[in-house]
Design a protein around this nucleic acid. Structure first.
Lengths: 187, 187
DNA sequence: AATCGTTTTTTACAAATGATAAAAAATTAT
DNA sequence: ATAATTTTTTATCATTTGTAAAAAACGATT
């Protein structure tokens, strides 16, 4: 099982000092399926490393939920805009499996960024990485239809397929459950 | 007509020293309609302030172009992931009107971020702002259909409507030209 | 093993969207 | 001013997608 420090360390080589300081700031927490890690309307003050389990970043539409992204083992999850701006989140993060996380707060990260250049570099790479993901998601939504997006997801996240419900996957893909069931039945 | 420095200054109050240093780094450039500001495959090394004109951030699909976002007067434009990672861009920036810009390079920004805390704060707010925009775009693509997205765009960018061609707007909205023409004719 | 509740799949129908072609309008160049 | 090009509109048809409701499959609990 990985941890937050080694995950960030992959972005930028840490000094032993930085590793130490980081490890001291990390808090562990566990959630049951359905638990809310970050509430809508609250500032997302945490950078969340998923040790075990699966969560969704989502928001409530008029009648149904829409899912921005899933985060599973060994991923860093946060409501990026709320975290960076320290403003109330329009989105929420919900566990869809029993989930174990470790997190560090925005303020601790800021502190360590000021103290250790290597932490700042890693944090910036994380943001850059998240930007790449968001741009890729936008372009995929523009360029590809539901069927293609489904197959992309299948290729890129084969192991998640058995863990995500039809409804949640359809909500992520931006299509209806019925549509997704039709896509699946066509091979 | 605004400029890059005063634009960034809105994000975080600059010291006179920082204003000076920034102004020294700024380069001016002009483009004709159709000119490419940032090429696909090249690293986007510039943070581009649009003084006058209109550009599109786009990419080439198999048969047609898809538009991620428009940037007009008084906007900061860049290929965010390429800029932050300093990796080749999958996207390009093209002028769709005669356009005047001022820009600062990635390296100069980095230098000034190290030197002036206020510049670093402004730059971070810019990134946070861009994140908000990208998340909003993803959620809009999930939640709303072409008709609703058209009306949102109309409300948020009334002045751009006469300046963007039907094809470009359709490409941004993720629908066909014909569909957009139908939407327009329905009131 | 039987039941309840949930999730997934299927079906039928209606509405929206895309593809294509062609005409009309607007813009640009000569 | 005219021709050439581009952009926008209109129409038709095929396909896709959504809605609603029912059926089937799956899991948890008793």
């Amino acid at each position: 099982m990985g941890n937050l420090t080694t995950f960030l360390n992959n972005f930028s080589e840490f000094t032993p000092d930085a590793v130490n300081d980081l490890n001291c700031c990390i808090v562990e927490e566990s959630f049951l399926k359905g638990d809310v890690l970050v509430q809508k309307g609250r500032v997302c003050g945490k950078l969340i490393y998923i040790k075990k389990g699966l969560v969704k970043l989502s928001f409530e539409g008029d009648y149904k939920e829409f899912i921005m992204r899933f985060f599973s083992e060994n991923a860093l999850s946060t409501v990026l805009d709320s975290f960076l701006n320290q403003t109330p989140s329009s989105y929420r993060i919900v566990a869809i499996e029993p989930t174990e996380i470790s997190y560090i707060t925005f303020y601790k990260i800021e502190e360590l960024c000021r103290k250790h250049h290597c932490v700042e570099a890693a944090f910036r790479k994380f943001i850059a990485h998240a930007s790449t993901n968001m741009m890729a998601r936008i372009s995929e939504m523009l360029e590809e239809d539901g069927t293609q997006r489904y197959h992309n997801f299948l290729k890129q996240n084969p192991s998640l397929m058995q863990r995500i419900s039809l409804g949640d996957l359809a909500s992520y893909l931006g299509i209806t459950q019925v549509s997704l069931s039709r896509i699946r039945s066509k091979q």
